[in-house]
């Protein structure tokens, strides 16, 4: 049984990663046919970095991912603090409302955002609203729940009296947040930001509905490429994209593991407080 489950796990991993591996190999091959590996070359990468179309688009995507994830992190953290302060029923309603976009099909989100922007564009009497701003708003929108969901647990784990203790020692509520609460929930904020960054960097579906000719992101352009015969430099691009996202994910996991380790160390007083509650 044990051997079987192991074999099964390996099989699943192969299934998950084999497309990426093939892509990686193809990106290092000199031919255009994925099925045959001709000879090892870095030419595809060289060509990619000389490409006058793709590189600016990559820059577009990175700029969008950085700005939307930063803004989503700021807004999402503020929202999480607000939700955390809410009382029981109101909080659960807000949480449900926050969670729905997570399960909502992306295509639905994309279409509805596109409709909204078109409507606003008409109201403002501009016939071409789609561009950086609409992409930014759309990306912030779908990133928000991820930030909220990674910050909220940190707020819950925090000793509720910390910000009161800060105010007791002379902090205004705002000072108390920046000096005491924020350092405490930082791991949640960082993982929310990283998650937003990756989500935004590789988003295609929603972006496809709200981009404009003025500002095209890499995934959208790649989709256009796939309608034509694929050039090998695209393989190189995909591989790089995969590696970047993989690195961000690994970073996130390391940060989380470190956070859990820190928490372990705080256990003794935790037990004491538990005992107190049991004793009195």
């Amino acid at each position: 049984m044990r051997a079987f489950t192991r074999a099964f796990t390996v099989l699943i991993l192969i299934f998950l990663y084999i497309p990426m591996i093939i892509l990686g190999i193809a990106s290092l091959s000199s031919g255009t046919d994925v099925a045959v590996f001709k000879e090892f070359t870095l030419n595809n990468y060289g060509e990619l970095f000389r490409d006058a179309v793709l590189l600016p688009l990559l820059l577009n995507s990175v700029i969008l991912a950085v700005s939307s994830s930063l803004l989503a992190t700021v807004i999402g953290t503020a929202a999480a603090v607000g939700i955390h302060r809410m009382s029981g029923r109101l909080r659960s309603i807000t949480m449900t409302l926050t969670n729905i976009p997570l399960t909502n099909p992306e295509i639905v989100t994309g279409v509805s955002l596109a409709l909204l922007f078109a409507f606003v564009g008409r109201a403002m009497k501009t016939n071409n609203v789609m561009g950086f701003l609409t992409l930014l708003i759309a990306h912030i929108t779908f990133n928000l729940p991820y930030v909220i969901l990674s910050v909220l647990p940190k707020l819950r784990q925090m000793d509720i009296h910390l910000s009161e203790a800060a105010m007791d020692l002379g902090c205004t509520p705002i000072q108390a947040f920046f000096k005491v609460v924020m350092p405490e929930i930082m791991p949640g904020i960082i993982s929310g930001a990283l998650m937003s960054f990756t989500m935004s960097l590789d988003d295609f579906v929603i972006s496809y509905f709200v981009y404009g000719a003025k500002y095209i992101t890499l995934p959208v352009e790649i989709y256009n490429y796939t309608k034509r015969p694929l050039q090998p430099k695209i393989y190189a691009l995909f591989t790089l994209l995969f590696i970047v996202i993989l690195l961000v994910m690994i970073l996130m996991n390391i940060l989380q593991a470190r956070d859990i380790k820190n928490r372990r160390r705080i256990r003794p007083p935790d037990i004491i407080s538990k005992l107190r509650r049991a004793g009195s």
């Binding site: 203790a165 205004t172 405490e184 007083p269």
Partner: peptide, 20 residues
């Protein structure tokens, strides 16, 4: 008068020390 303007300081029930 908010807490930060009172000449009073508190030792909290579970200390509430700043972990960072």
């Amino acid at each position: 008068v908010p807490p930060y303007k009172r000449q009073v300081n508190t030792v909290f029930q579970r200390y509430a020390l700043f972990p960072h």
